[in-house]
Design a protein around this nucleic acid. Structure first.
Lengths: 246, 246
DNA sequence: CGGACCATTGACCATAGTCAACCGCCGTGG
DNA sequence: CCACGGCGGTTGACTATGGTCAATGGTCCG
């Protein structure tokens, strides 16, 4: 398991130029770890949060709870992400956050964060930036679920997750662990579970990728990116070359 | 036409408690006005922005440009909104911003904004908050376009626009001017133009609302909100009662 | 061994996309 | 002044796509 400051400094300093003092301030952040079981909620729709979480291990997701009890998953969060940074300035949660598999997060009190922002504005800006990337990912999800075919949509999601996972050193070769079931995939992509299954079978048969038992295997990255119409600019990460995954 | 500081102070002080000095700083913001013709781009996907815009008049939208030339509209922006605040911390635009009808915006240099944030953190937090509400609206769009029927989806969009328009004093009685065509509606909601039309006809026949010639008329708000499964919490505005619109 | 849960598959059906024709309005130009 | 053309909206007929439902299989755990 990794520590909060390690994960945060790595993430934030990738794009924001943080001074020695900024980094020191981050290192002094007080946090309490919390372990979550599979499918356990970290925070629910309607709650008033006083902490923000940083993912240390596993995977979290955000979701809307619909009137009829169904879920709409909105995004997935890997180690280093802050899945509920928005709670900092919006009093009431408009969505829930839950663990996909077993997961560990670090909880940082809002007070603590606000104190740091006052002392070291650059840290605030860096986290602000993270929330903006978040928004960018949501925008892409709108487009993905509205304007793309089922195959492209599915491929795109896996592209994004693999790309982000790779940027965070979570991939092992051409594989990535994703504790997601077909039901959740359906509730993410806005398609019926049967369709998810058939679409995955289709993708498998193209030789571009396969997804089995919570493990994504990329067999042909350029092919997969093409099928998913994937252009990583919206992730605002350093450009990575994955063409060797063929 | 309204002035920048007027529009900004109104918007920001609705939720953030800004001190006298904060408001003074906002009043000193230097901006240049810019008029946009119908369908004119303010900024394009891939551009590197150095200004942020504040809508003064008319309506702007953000959209993704797809590989085949189609558009996916992501959000609409009314006077007081900052449709490209994200450019502050993300160097490259991952989407475009354009005027729907004729519109006027005020351009504020990023440098100027950053200077203010350094001097008056509360102003920064207030604008950060705006970008978080933005993100919340995107999340709702994901859910809307993925998990709701065509009717609900369409009704929900109009509910949101009317509610936000009402909060900004842009409604006249039960009407709101919306310079949007059926094609754009389709490219917003992820449905074919023919379906948009039929859905609108359906909504009209329920007596809940009608949309004609760029004018939305709400005939029965509770009914419309029910059809659209509309719950305004995600907008993080002061709660407004519209039940008198029957 | 039995049951729960998830994935898989097939058959059927509802829904919305496609295509094409038509309408109505508006602005232009003869 | 009217004729024409274009654009945006409207409508109908057909079709493709993906949702629904139901049955089966596989795996893990008690």
């Amino acid at each position: 398991m990794i520590s909060v400051d390690r994960v945060l400094t790595e993430k934030l300093s990738e794009h924001s130029r943080l001074s020695h003092d900024d980094l020191a301030a981050i290192r002094r952040i007080g946090s309490t770890p919390r372990e979550l079981g599979p499918n356990e909620d970290l925070i629910r729709q309607g709650d008033v949060p006083h902490n923000s979480a940083i993912v240390l291990e596993g995977m979290l997701s955000r979701y809307h709870l619909l009137a009829d009890g169904r879920r709409q998953y909105l995004s997935f969060h890997l180690p280093g992400d802050m899945p509920d940074a928005q709670g900092l300035f919006l009093t009431r949660m408009d969505h829930a956050v839950c663990a996909m598999g077993r997961a560990v997060v670090a909880l940082v009190p809002h007070k603590e964060l606000l104190r740091i922002f006052a002392a070291r504005p650059a840290v605030g800006f860096a986290i602000w930036r993270e929330t903006l990337i978040d928004a960018s990912i949501f925008r892409e999800a709108v487009t993905n679920n509205s304007a793309r075919t089922m195959v492209a949509r599915t491929a795109h999601l896996f592209c994004e997750l693999f790309y982000r996972g790779h940027a965070s050193n979570l991939t092992r070769g051409n594989t990535l662990q994703l504790p997601i079931g077909l039901t959740q995939l359906g509730e993410t992509l806005g398609m019926a579970i049967a369709t998810v299954n058939r679409t995955l079978a289709g993708l498998r048969s193209t030789g571009a990728m396969q997804f089995r038992n919570g493990e994504l295997t990329v067999r042909n990255w350029p092919r997969l990116a093409e099928i998913g119409e994937f252009d990583p600019t919206y992730l605002h990460l350093k450009t990575m070359d994955l063409t060797h995954l063929v």
